[in-house]
Amino acid sequence: MPLFWRVCLINGAVFLLGTLALALSPATVSAQPLLSELVVLLLGLTVIVLLNGALLRTVLRPLDRLTAVTGQIDLRHPGLRLDEDGSGPARPLVRGFNAMLERLELERSTSTARALRAQEAERQRIAQELHDEVGQSLTAVLLGLRHAMDSAPEPVRAELDELRGTTRASLEEVRRIAQRLRPGDLTDLGLISALAGLARATSARNGPRVRRRLPTSVPDLPSATELVIYRVAQEALTNVVRHARAESVDLGLTLSDGRLVLRVVDDGVGIPRGAMGAGIQGMLERARMVGGVLDVRAREDRRGGSGTEVRLSLPLPRRAEP
């Protein structure tokens, strides 16, 4: 029954009760009400108000709970729902609210996934163009300068040599930007090599020593999943270099119980409370996109050391044995 009719019915029933009491009881009210009559009337009124209040309360309390929950809703932490069974008369409303949350969360995760996919596609396109157009043209310029140098008179030669240095630096810069935008080694050499390269590059940039614990091979994964694993490792290692002041990091990938688990564990200063930045949020979104679970927590260490552990767990795609 709709809430409006429920409230009307309760009020009507209470009024009916009062009317019946007046009509059927021998009580009368004089034209000039006596004090005793007023006391009886007041008592009756109090009974009616209390009864009405108590009855309406059962109907309306779930609404208050609903209001409280709406204040707590945060789509970044999905999964919060109202108890439908304990909602009594407000059940349809609660059910509608829960269904709405469901739709919102679904919509949010699909639109985040869409946004991330669009971002990756765009990055890939830019990287491709940088690599194929700008990079190749600069290579041609570099080679041309070298060739021109060989036949140029001495004063021009020094100038050409300088230009060659600039061209080389630009070429390296273009390559670096392209690699950051799109990990070319991931598509060319596969996930394991790409992760190994990432570890090496992190150590080489004056970062902490990265110990690799990578299997020699992994089952074939969808490229979207490989990209998520790579990006999470990349983001986690970037965070370690920027914030952790760590001496060493373990980068591990393991296969167990039909799940693939990526772990990045450092021995740094740990994450201060409330310091979860956009980077970690991005990792969470990416993990969710491919059905994975991401967990960022203080490192487990019996010797009381500090540090951070980033753990990404993904279900392996099921496939029939060939």
């Binding site: 080679l143 300068l145 060319d188």
Partner: peptide, 28 residues
């Protein structure tokens, strides 16, 4: 190659190549 990455270098050796030259140093 454009890639300054030892993984590519070893992949090249495994593919049977004799060497790996970076484009940014190809002139030299």
């Amino acid at each position: 190659s454009m890639h300054d990455n030892e993984q590519y270098f070893f992949a090249a050796l495994k593919a049977g190549a004799s060497g790996y030259v970076l484009k940014s140093a190809a002139d030299e």
